[in-house]
Design a protein around this nucleic acid. Sequence first.
DNA 1: CTGAAAGCGCTTACAG
DNA 2: CTGAAAGCGCTTACAG
Lengths: 372, 372
Amino acid sequence: MPGGDGAVVERGNIVTRIDDVARLAGVSTATVSRALRGLPTVSAATRRRVLAAAEQLEYAVSPSASRLAGGRTGTVAVVVPRITRWFFGTVVETVEDHLHQAGYDLLLYNLGGREQIRQRVLRTANLHKRVDAIMLVATPLRPADLTALARLELPGITISSGSHVPGWPCVRIDDVAAARTATRHLLDLGHRRIAHISGDPDDELAFTTHLDRRRGYQEALRAAGIDPDPSLDVESQFTIDGGTRATAELLARGEPPTAIFAACDEMAMGAISALRDAGLRVPQDVSVIGVDDHDLARVLGLSTIAQPAAEQGRLAVRLLLDPLRTRTADPYAGQVPEQRGPDHPDDPPGQQPVILPTRLVVRDSTAPPRAH
Amino acid sequence: MPGGDGAVVERGNIVTRIDDVARLAGVSTATVSRALRGLPTVSAATRRRVLAAAEQLEYAVSPSASRLAGGRTGTVAVVVPRITRWFFGTVVETVEDHLHQAGYDLLLYNLGGREQIRQRVLRTANLHKRVDAIMLVATPLRPADLTALARLELPGITISSGSHVPGWPCVRIDDVAAARTATRHLLDLGHRRIAHISGDPDDELAFTTHLDRRRGYQEALRAAGIDPDPSLDVESQFTIDGGTRATAELLARGEPPTAIFAACDEMAMGAISALRDAGLRVPQDVSVIGVDDHDLARVLGLSTIAQPAAEQGRLAVRLLLDPLRTRTADPYAGQVPEQRGPDHPDDPPGQQPVILPTRLVVRDSTAPPRAH
DNA sequence: CTGAAAGCGCTTACAG
DNA sequence: CTGAAAGCGCTTACAG
């Protein structure tokens, strides 16, 4: 835009550039750049002058210019299946907090079950040159996705993912164990006819979570000498509606179970709704337990396996960012970072997934079966 | 980064640049740039060759370079109080969809009630040079915020906001009317002792929504010849917990009301929980109605005033983007846009807020009072 | 319809 | 510790 003006898009705003700061501080732009980013090769006196000038002029770097010149975007792509679901919303909330604290921008991608979007995000070069790192939350990866991801050569992390991306750490809970605990709780109460409602593998959002939870359910049954009854195992979606539909289907199949283990709290809530509609009381007629410890679980008196959603988000940000930060100085983001010592010696994230603990929370939706 | 290599941050990835495409297509980079963005000043034959070359090389523009040269970021900042709350999650989900469809990136800011974050986002030059537009969802604006926003000179839009930013359109519901309808529903059922639980003005997230809803509540009472009883009006937070606390407080004050109008569904759910804990049945002992039509409202049988959250998000994106798009061509984002005719003549968004309709949804949580 | 060249606003070796 | 200058990869008047 030589001599840019006139018909060109009006950009307006506060137009302080780095050379304005340099001029006011009486140094070169190179020195301003270094001072503002807290690089160690600047004298204290110079730094002070630069900071004062930047503040006086209300200077803010141009992210585009900084990114182009520096080769870093200071941005992380966060990919979730559906931001409206409790687990994903909670994870994103924590991730946003820690990412911004660390000076990173958060680019949000909500897949929403649309395969087309999935491909655009994962398989094209869309993320390429746009972000420094990728966080995939419960995003199922197909072989082609893995290939595309590998070609991007970007660092990343997965949360609650079944697929392993080579070189990417993973944070999750032990879904098999969580399901085992839930089922065992029902068994301990005396239940024998325990149904399971879970995710649909044909769903475009299919992820391995539900497979693991089913496995835990079946393991617990077998350990108690019970052969899993396929007619008590219904697949639907990981949503309230999915739980309602699955439960209706379950009831339509004949004699109701005395207990239902729902693969997530939202399905459990749907189950409670369907049971109520069918005139069955919870827990007198049918016990219900879920997984998550959704905000509303307490309100509904829902027994559940609590999982630390926020903690998974927090940890994921740390595992993702720590390696990035030791590479080079962060771009100036309004305040000069403290000068760092040598690399923190506290992050040896191996290739093993980091497993966070879950916890059985007994409320009012589970009780011994009546016949007992 | 002259001769960049060696110790420099390894950037890796697919390194096709615009001149690779130009060389392969046998044209200048200027022509590649124009062809890829669908500008009209390129011959069909040339365009075809450029597209083929870009595809063959899997070329993707560098957003940083494009933004720096073009002066547009192709990014919108979306600011919400708490992404985990139903209304905001639902709005963001729709907004994300439409923004990405239009080729824009979404930078997410979750205020989380932290005044410090609010200031960083709204009052500093943080957004400046970083986004082309701002969407503020239910974000309360103080005079200093308005000044700061005005200085940014960025286009923007507010959803569900009490504050008017000069030049920004606003999408919302009529909160006063919604509250009036809810209260009148309770009056029509025969209730006279109708309590109201609502948001706390001292809350850092305080927004005018709750003031409007209280006004509607009081107007409906007065229209029915009832003087609003301050002891039946409790302030708390717009959350489940807030609803629980407010209701507990209400019950502690003496004779319970026969009905509660909660300012949002989440508060209503908290109210139901508190009532149950107090041994009161809904709706036999106390009726409860909220506002929103939260996903769980149906499950809980909660009567409510439904508001179109997704529709507000969709409309907001349109009102925000339409004026932007007529200014200049969108940057290349992987596929060439169809060539546009002259500006759409279909967007005359005045300074008047766009008010979307609400709707009374009667479920099982409201019934005539027993005494009646 | 197309190209040469300037310019967007930074950061980074390099040389001192 | 600091500066001059190249370069990051695009887009845009301008001239044809």
